[in-house]
């Protein structure tokens, strides 16, 4: 039995998880530089210890109105092959250790924008956690 640790967070009351290995860090940040002409899901840019990081708004990716950045937002910094990207989320949850075998395919009822971002679902004690596909989540478009 192999277990995987997931960092969890909420977007629009839905619990999501990312493999811990993918997550660089989690931080709250309030100063974003907007990027006019950029795709709608780009919340802005910010400075993380000398690196320019793009914050992608998961709400927009899920087809919801954009996150209000004016009084700070929670960033999940994700490491991908060629860059660090931040995912803007509503709230940070716990790190949970889950058994690989308990993973279920995304339910057929799951449609819309969110479907493409989900690799699996995990039924937790009281709710369902959707495991995000890190690469899909940070991809352009």
């Amino acid at each position: 039995m192999t277990t995987v640790q997931y960092a969890t967070f909420e977007v629009a009351d839905q619990l999501f998880g990312l493999e811990v290995g993918r997550v660089q860090e989690v931080l709250s940040f309030s100063e974003y530089t907007p990027v006019p002409h950029a795709p709608a899901h780009v919340g802005g840019l910010f400075n993380l210890r000398g690196q320019v990081i793009a914050a992608l708004d998961l709400r927009v990716r899920l087809g919801l109105p954009p996150t209000d950045l004016s009084d700070g937002a929670m960033n999940v910094i994700v490491r991908t092959e060629d860059e660090w990207v931040s995912l803007l989320v509503d709230r940070i949850g716990d790190v949970v250790e889950l058994d690989d075998n308990s993973a279920e395919p995304p339910p057929d009822t799951l449609t819309g924008p969110v479907r493409n971002l989900i690799v699996a679902t995990f039924p937790l004690a009281d709710r369902l956690m959707l495991a995000l596909d890190a690469r899909a989540a940070v991809q352009a478009g």
Partner: peptide, 24 residues
């Protein structure tokens, strides 16, 4: 700027100003 901003075309890059804020 990351590839995602290449199509935007209006920017030659980004930078971090003296006060730490990112500017295009």
């Amino acid at each position: 700027l990351a590839a995602r901003f290449k199509d935007v075309g209006s920017y030659a890059g980004a930078t971090i100003l003296g006060d730490g804020e990112v500017a295009l």
